[in-house]
């Protein structure tokens, strides 16, 4: 008997080069297993991330977005992670106004030494999103049209 495909969430993770990305690397070196639903994008600092990045990720069909920055007080660029935190909060508000659950976007603070925590965080995020179900935005229906004049 054929069984319907169970829902496997697609998670985009923006990871800071100085901490969470290294933690993901460490998780790999430690041979820790975590689900493969996650797509890591390395950023120079979470302070580089704009609200648009999160919105676009959801527009294009991501079921969840994880922002992983340094622990508060340890940002390589002093306060990039604090800026990211405020932007994530703003984007969560916008998502909720648009009809998506706030929980689909999450920010965490992980140091480069926390390989185990990284793997656990990813698992937890995936479970949270799995419970919420698929992103109702069907990316094939999204038509981004950037008009250019001149």
């Amino acid at each position: 008997m054929m069984r319907a495909n169970p829902f496997e969430p697609k998670i985009v993770a923006f990871c800071c080069h100085y901490c969470a990305y290294a933690a993901a690397d460490l998780a790999g070196s430690m041979r820790l297993q975590y689900p493969t639903n996650i797509r890591i994008i390395r950023t120079p600092c979470t302070g580089k991330l704009e609200v648009e990045y999160f919105m676009r990720a959801f527009e294009y069909g991501a079921d969840g977005v994880l922002v992983a920055g340094c622990e508060e007080g340890s940002c390589h660029f002093i306060e990039g992670n604090l800026m990211a935190k405020r932007r994530v909060n703003y984007a969560r508000e916008l998502l909720s106004e648009s009809g998506l659950e706030r929980k689909r976007l999450r920010m965490v603070n992980i140091s480069a030494a926390m390989g185990t925590v990284f793997a656990e965080t990813v698992k937890d995020m995936i479970e949270t999103v799995r419970k919420l179900g698929p992103n109702p935005v069907r990316s094939d229906h999204v038509n981004v049209k950037q008009e250019i004049h001149r």
């Binding site: 527009e59 998506l100 109702p136 981004v144 049209k145």
Partner: peptide, 28 residues
């Protein structure tokens, strides 16, 4: 930047609520 953010939010809302918006962005 705000045009891009609000357009994104509107596209998401349009998809969630099945409003069939086709949204273009331009800043003068």
């Amino acid at each position: 930047r705000e045009v891009s953010i609000i357009s994104s939010a509107l596209r998401i809302a349009s998809n969630v609520q099945e409003l069939d918006f086709e949204i273009g962005e331009l800043t003068i």
